[in-house]
Amino acid sequence: MAVFTEVSFEEAAAFVSTLDVGQLTALRGIGAGIENTNYFVSTTQGEWVLTLFERLTYEQLPFYLHLMRHLAQRGIPVPEPRSDDNDQILHQLNGKPAALVNKLPGGHQLAPDLHHCEQVGEMLARMHLAGADFPLAQPNLRGLPWWQETVPVVLPFLTDDQKALITEELAFQTELAASAAHAGLPRGPVHADLFRDNVMFEGLPGRERLTGFFDFYFAGVDTYLFDIAVCLNDWCLDLDSGRGVDERAVAFVAAYERVRPLSSTERRLMPAMLRAGALRFWVSRLWDLHLPRDASMLKPHDPTHFERVLRARIATPWHPQGQRDE
């Protein structure tokens, strides 16, 4: 989230007037994130988030917006897009595709403990099951083909050691994706970016309750295992070293499996998929840092974080059941 396209109060007021959410009372740009233009919107009927999509096209966006509506209608706490009188949830503002969704209550938990990880694991499994019958299909646009396209673009910015690491890992993931085992992994709509800052909690410290997942604009059809790996690489991580925290990971996976048990192949490929999750975000952060776009309040993330995570995953393959290869 950032501000690439400026929206005035008058423009936002005219926009929300078509969506039956009351009159606009406040508009504030959101500086976090790097993909879309986002504003907090206050009206006489509640709190909302306005998004103008900077990269996704009109053809791609129905997948994301209708997935959110599908999940919300099945009891998953996610923002639900607001429709106009014609039941359209994809709109236009200042020449850009736009959507208005309800703002989830609560705040981020940036220092998660076991009970946070358990709740995220359980809700992720519920989300996977709830999305299994979603009728639309769109690939994960930041999946392997995007890695293969983007790695050559960022290579000139890397040291020789980094170049060797990223090209060797891309070759490993390409071979894995072509395997029969990978082809047999359960799959469906996944969030693919469920970091700590995309989940909300509320309540007293130590007793917080998960109130929702948001920012589905990297979602796509991929393996459920990839979604799990992305979560484990953030929620169950020692941020300084990049090593996994077994206690949190065991709690996360156990909670997930109480809702949707993992297959034997998913368990076996978990260490490799954790590497895939680290590679994906190392590549995207390198791209955002070295090939930035102009935006108000744009703050690229540090790519070296996921370089450390990838090196840790390769050096010590991680099994979320608490067992490590020696």
Rank of each mutant, 00 (worst) to 15 (best):
D234M: 06
G242I: 03
R324W: 01
E208R: 14
N140L: 15
E149K: 12
V190K: 06
E47R: 14
H290D: 00
L204H: 03
Y58E: 15
A13Q: 15
A177K: 07
D84R: 02
P105F: 01
A219E: 05
F172W: 05
E257H: 05
D288G: 00
L237I: 13
V309H: 07
M1V: 07
V230H: 07
F218D: 12
A249G: 14
F213D: 04
E54Q: 14
A254L: 01
A137V: 12
N233R: 08
H182N: 07
E175T: 10
T44E: 13
D288E: 13
A137Y: 06
F216C: 09
G203Y: 10
S241D: 01
D197W: 03
V153D: 01
R285E: 06
I34A: 11
G206S: 07
H108S: 08
F214C: 07
R55Q: 15
R280Y: 01
N94K: 14
K299S: 10
D215T: 07
A183D: 12
H182P: 00
A132Q: 15
A229I: 01
N36G: 09
R55T: 15
L90P: 04
L65C: 03
V120Y: 13
D246R: 10
I76W: 03
L286Q: 13
E6H: 13
D133V: 06
T43K: 09
E169M: 15
T265C: 01
G33M: 12
L93R: 06
L262Q: 08
E80R: 12
A315D: 10
A171T: 13
S179A: 07
S17G: 08
A219M: 11
S42N: 12
G131E: 06
K163N: 13
R285C: 03
V199Y: 03
V78M: 02
K96E: 07
H128C: 05
M1Y: 05
S42Q: 15
A312R: 13
I166E: 10
G143Y: 02
K103M: 11
A181Q: 12
V120K: 13
D234N: 14
A177G: 03
G188I: 03
E122Q: 15
R267T: 06
W147H: 06
D234L: 08
T43M: 12
N198E: 04
L194W: 06
E247T: 14
E326Y: 00
A249K: 09
F214E: 05
Q173S: 02
G203R: 10
A132T: 12
S241H: 04
M123E: 10
G143W: 02
F281H: 11
G31P: 12
R207P: 00
G242N: 04
D85Q: 12
G242L: 06
E266P: 06
A98P: 11
W48V: 04
G46V: 13
R207V: 00
F214Q: 07
L158Y: 01
H116A: 14
P105Y: 00
V21W: 06
N94V: 09
A171I: 02
G212Q: 09
H108E: 14
V250H: 04
G22T: 13
N36V: 09
K299V: 10
P271S: 04
A26I: 01
N86V: 00
A181W: 00
R196Q: 14
L90T: 05
E10R: 14
L52A: 06
D222T: 12
T51V: 10
Q88F: 04
T316V: 14
R248W: 07
N198M: 08
F281M: 10
